[in-house]
Computed example of a mutant assay.
Amino acid sequence: MNISIDLTLSPLQDDYEKHVIDFIKALRDSEFTVLENPLSTQIYGEFSKLMPFLTQAIETSFENQNICVLTMKVVKTDRSAYEPHF
């Protein structure tokens, strides 16, 4: 089953930019489709492959921070080709 995940990483510390950039680079280096916008990053792929990868990427990111909030929305479909029609 294909899924789409919308992620927003919010480190609660002064050097937050470095942590956000490192997290996005880890996502980009994966085998999955990654799209970015100024507010969040989306990653798309097969559920059984994407979730273990994402678990490890989040754990690595959290280990390098003091306090962090990660907002994640998961949709049960691949929305990577979505284009608004308005």
Rank of each mutant, 00 (worst) to 15 (best):
M1S: 13
M1R: 06
N2V: 05
N2K: 15
N2H: 10
I3L: 13
I3C: 13
S4T: 12
S4Y: 10
S4K: 04
I5C: 15
D6L: 15
D6T: 15
T8P: 11
L9T: 04
L9C: 08
S10C: 12
S10V: 15
S10G: 02
P11W: 09
P11F: 15
P11A: 13
L12S: 11
L12D: 10
Q13L: 13
D14N: 11
D15C: 06
Y16K: 11
Y16V: 05
E17P: 02
K18Q: 14
K18R: 14
H19K: 09
H19F: 12
H19T: 11
I21E: 10
I21D: 08
F23V: 06
F23D: 09
F23G: 09
I24A: 00
I24K: 08
I24L: 01
K25R: 04
K25F: 02
K25N: 08
A26Q: 12
A26F: 01
A26D: 06
R28D: 01
R28P: 00
D29V: 01
D29A: 14
S30M: 03
E31R: 06
E31F: 01
F32N: 07
F32D: 05
T33L: 08
V34W: 09
L35C: 05
E36K: 11
E36M: 09
E36A: 14
N37W: 08
L39S: 09
L39Q: 10
S40L: 02
T41N: 07
Q42G: 10
Q42P: 04
Q42V: 02
I43W: 04
Y44G: 00
G45N: 12
G45P: 06
E46A: 05
E46T: 12
E46I: 13
E46C: 05
E46Y: 06
E46K: 13
F47N: 04
S48V: 05
K49Y: 12
L50V: 08
L50M: 11
M51S: 15
M51G: 12
P52S: 05
P52E: 08
P52Q: 11
F53N: 03
F53K: 06
L54F: 12
L54G: 05
T55H: 14
Q56V: 14
A57W: 08
A57V: 15
I58Q: 00
I58N: 02
I58W: 03
E59Y: 07
E59W: 02
T60F: 03
T60V: 08
S61W: 02
S61K: 03
F62Y: 02
F62E: 03
E63W: 03
E63I: 12
N64D: 04
Q65V: 13
Q65P: 00
N66V: 02
N66D: 01
I67H: 10
C68K: 02
L70N: 02
T71E: 03
M72C: 09
M72Y: 09
K73A: 05
V74A: 11
V74Y: 08
V74H: 05
V75Q: 07
T77C: 07
D78T: 07
R79Q: 10
R79G: 00
S80D: 03
S80M: 01
A81L: 12
A81C: 04
A81G: 06
Y82T: 00
E83D: 00
P84I: 04
P84A: 09
H85P: 00
H85Y: 02
F86P: 01
F86H: 13
F86D: 04
